[in-house]
Computed example of a mutant assay.
Amino acid sequence: MKQELEFFAGDAMPWREAAQPGTEEKMLSQDPDDPVVLTRLVRWLPGLDTSDAGVITHDYVEEVYLLEGDLVDLTLGQTFGPGHFASRRPGMRHGPYRTPAGCTMLEIRYRA
């Protein structure tokens, strides 16, 4: 289970390199016993293209809210921007993506 946290200045946290090349993150909360369970801000740097990874699936629920920039879904042939939201069940196919100018999103992951 994630730790209890009262309000804190998330904007004051530094961006750090994330596991996926071309991304940075601010980890807002995470389950120490199951690191995939998290809430974070993630920033995709300009020019990031996930085509090489192909279509994505995972074994957790993922919710994503785009805050800034644009994200191009290469499978759907659509571009999404600020205010767009996705909710993905385990096993749901999505992506690959490209972001010519970069984007920032709020990402929440949890187990079903």
Rank of each mutant, 00 (worst) to 15 (best):
L74D: 13
P32S: 06
G10F: 07
A19W: 13
S29Q: 10
E68C: 01
K2I: 13
H84G: 07
Q20R: 07
E63R: 07
V64L: 15
A101Y: 05
Y65R: 08
L76I: 02
T75F: 07
W15P: 03
E4W: 15
P32F: 04
M92L: 11
T23G: 06
Q20K: 13
L74M: 08
L66M: 04
L5N: 15
Q30P: 02
L41G: 06
Q3R: 15
H58M: 07
E24T: 08
T79I: 08
D31G: 00
D49K: 09
D34S: 11
R111V: 14
I108H: 15
V64R: 05
D31N: 12
D52T: 15
K26W: 02
K2A: 14
G83T: 09
V36G: 13
T75I: 03
G81H: 04
T57W: 00
D70T: 11
H94M: 02
A53G: 15
M92V: 10
D11F: 13
G83D: 03
T23S: 15
L41C: 10
L71W: 12
G47H: 05
P100K: 08
D33W: 12
Y65P: 02
R16M: 10
E4Y: 09
D59N: 05
V64P: 02
T79L: 08
G69E: 07
E6T: 11
